[in-house]
Nucleic acid binder design. Structure first.
Lengths: 331, 331
DNA sequence: TTGTAAGCGTTATCAG
DNA sequence: CTGATAACGCTTACAA
């Protein structure tokens, strides 16, 4: 490893001068500076991040704590965070809390121990960890008072609900994966708001909820709204097994716009997160907190975007009636 | 931040003694040692990783370079690598090359600059990067001569092919996403080997290939084998749109056993990677290389596991014939 | 414009 | 058994 000292000795100056020439901070004669720079690049000099971190107290590394790395959203968050971090000259250290709240704290202290400058947390369902004495931001959902930034899950649900109600559905099944998740609770609350007071709804959770779907449809429901695309796919599977077609017999919506949303048939009407904006904002706030500003930023809910595809339609009864109306008008 | 020096001063000994007491290296009287340890934990002492890294020349951090963080396999690799790393006291710094070979090299030097001790690379399709002077392992596929460890994509394809041939299929569509990918090429080669010489096959790629599926089925094919579960889902969508049922009219297989494999209907017969073993082995080899051993380990192909579900069956023509045979036998 | 020197927190060597 | 002390590579006043 070539060091500053190395270069300094080779060229016959002091390490301070080399440091200054390379960083452009102190004043160094242009002639000397270029000589130093060329030698440095010839030698393939790389500053030691350890030494720099030791001296400056900043590692240039951020920690990312995810509740579960296999969470389908993780790749998108990781990617956008990684891009946003890179443009700020920062690196990202990952830690997995594997669905366990205790491990989450462990991961947190692990990262702190590794000297990260700040932490991005996507909390475990139902928890709100408090990292001690290190700048942090939380990406969760609006109803978590500690959240820094989040997708507007409530508003997203509302858009979806409005869409379904607007099509004429008046009895709807709301399907969640895990009732403990605040994110999913917010999504469902939003859906209910969007559906409005005229629509009846049944909320069902998990595998049992999934299995209950055909029964609920028989009972008169004409639409199924899931809190994730994967759950929607599962519902679709139950429906076709029961001989029910989408969107003919029942309309279906998902959440998150995962790749599978366009791979299934019919393509899934769903709602997309603006992960890029979320990542950018999270890092902006985090950078500010690392710089020592008071954490007085209001929490931000980034709007979600409705993606209309072919899994939703006017309910069959209504569409027949419309046809009849039209025939009546034409005759 | 409490430092060794801090503790040393408080207790009236030298930093060296504190260091020794805490690490258990040098011999320190039991009485003093416990006194030091209790004070340390009271003060919440955390060793500075920067200082340690500077001194020892080891950061305890590994870099992970992925071709594209949104690759559906990334979460599983990341998680298993992260678990394996944690148990070795190492951290993982991620870098995304975003589908771009140039960025891949950039990511590599980035990580090196951050002082990682070693690198795990999942290469960009069709590339084989050579990190300069830093221990590294490559996770790709057996036909890449630089691969350190990989799933046995060839063998996996072979198992799947054998299964399909065993059911009696004699004309099969092989569906890949991107012909540039060595992984997918290996999977398809394996499938062909498994199908054996008696079966005809058509290889098709990408979106166009997907669209050609119904036509190929009309032409007499009775099974579709995809190089990923997501592609299989896409094929399923095309099939049902064409009024063809799975596995009634056509058998369907995927690859990787993603969560969606069990969410679709019928559940997908596919093949699973033993990502855990792959991660463990990658880190074992990497640790050995970091420790300075010659990189003479033979490359390892970890067997894949066939997951039989309900998307594959005996071809219709054959099953009718069997019924007839049976009726004949019974009469 | 350049050099000197101190110090970041650890660890390792070598005396005491 | 314990303590000085140097050293890792870098930054940054401050002095020349």
């Amino acid at each position: 490893m070539t060091s500053l000292k190395q270069i300094a000795r080779d060229i016959g100056v002091s390490t301070a001068t080399v440091s200054n020439a390379l960083s452009g901070k102190g004043r160094v004669s242009e002639e000397l500076a270029t000589r130093i720079r060329t030698l440095a690049s010839e030698l393939g000099y790389r500053p030691s991040s350890a030494a720099r971190a030791l001296k400056t107290g900043q590692s240039g590394i951020l920690g990312l704590v995810m509740p579960d790395l296999t969470n389908p959203l993780f790749p998108r968050i990781a990617q956008n965070l990684s891009i946003a971090a890179e443009s700020r000259g920062l690196g990202i250290l990952i830690a997995d809390s594997r669905g366990d709240a205790a491990r989450q704290d462990e991961a947190l202290t692990q990262l702190v121990g590794r000297g990260v400058d700040g932490i991005v947390i996507v909390p475990q369902k139902g928890t709100s960890p408090v990292p001690d004495g290190i700048p942090a931001v939380v990406i969760n959902t609006a109803s978590d008072p500690r959240t820094t930034v989040s997708a507007d899950h409530l508003g997203g649900g509302r858009q979806l609900g409005t869409h379904i109600a607007g099509l004429g559905h008046r009895e709807v099944v709301l399907l969640g994966g895990d009732a403990v998740s605040e994110v999913q609770q917010d999504r469902i609350r939003g859906m209910i708001e969007g559906l409005g007071p005229d629509a009846r709804h049944h909320v069902a959770w998990g595998e049992a909820g999934l299995d209950a779907v055909p029964h609920l449809i028989e009972g008169g429901a004409t639409a199924v709204m899931a809190t994730s695309d994967l759950i929607a796919l599962g519902a679709h599977s139950r429906l076709s097994r029961a001989g029910l077609s989408v969107p003919g017999d029942v309309s279906l919506t998902g959440f998150d716009d995962l790749p599978l949303a366009t791979a299934m048939h019919p393509e899934l009407t769903t709602i997309a997160q603006d992960v890029q904006t979320i990542a950018e904002h999270a890092l902006d706030v985090l950078a500010r907190r690392i710089a020592g500003h008071a954490p007085d930023d209001p929490s931000l809910a980034v709007p979600m975007r409705l993606v209309l595809r072919t899994s939703t339609a006017v309910p069959r009864a209504l569409s027949r009636q419309q046809e009849t109306d039209q025939q009546g008008a034409n005759s």
